[in-house]
Write a protein that binds this DNA or RNA. Structure first.
Length: 141
DNA sequence: GCCAACGTTGGC
DNA sequence: GCCAACGTTGGC
């Protein structure tokens, strides 16, 4: 099992939209990613892998956990044939989102890709980082 | 709204 | 293949 982090702008697609999709269709297509490294990361995802869902822009924070329900397939919003995406379902919303400021402030998380490479929209998370953030979420909820 | 970081494009 | 110009992302 591998761990990941996916960003979304809540004004365009938020955690609530993820839950709405889940109620109606069972998953959300994570379409619209147009960055090669982000795409390659999605192509490396396996069914059952878990992802942090991150809201960018106003109040940047990790807001919850999702799960990969379908591995990479053609992005239905793309006609070039270049872009792939995965399908995601919500698993758990954090009672208290973990803000970017907190992630940056904690030495255990300061080498996260989220901190080092702020613009990469789909990134991997180490098992250590994953466990640490889960603990943090349990404490603050 | 500003601007730094950084990915992409295109001329040479 | 280099690199300047340009566009986009995303934190602040």
């Amino acid at each position: 099992m591998n761990y990941w982090l996916m960003k979304t702008e809540p004004g365009t697609f938020s955690w609530d939209d993820l839950e709405k999709d889940f109620m109606t269709r069972g998953w959300s297509e994570w379409d619209g990613v147009r960055n090669y490294e982000a795409r390659n990361n999605m192509c490396a995802m396996k069914q059952g892998d878990e992802v942090f869902i991150y809201h960018s822009s106003i109040k940047p924070a990790i807001v919850g956990i999702g799960r990969i329900v379908h591995e990479a397939h053609a992005d239905s919003s793309d006609t070039s044939g270049l872009w792939q995406c995965v399908d995601v379902a919500p698993v758990k919303k954090f009672a208290c989102p973990i803000s970017l400021a907190v992630v940056k402030a904690l030495p255990q998380l300061k080498s996260m890709t989220l901190v080092k490479r702020g613009r990469l929209s789909v990134q991997s998370v180490t098992h250590e980082e994953w466990k640490f953030i889960l603990k943090l979420a349990a404490v603050t909820s």
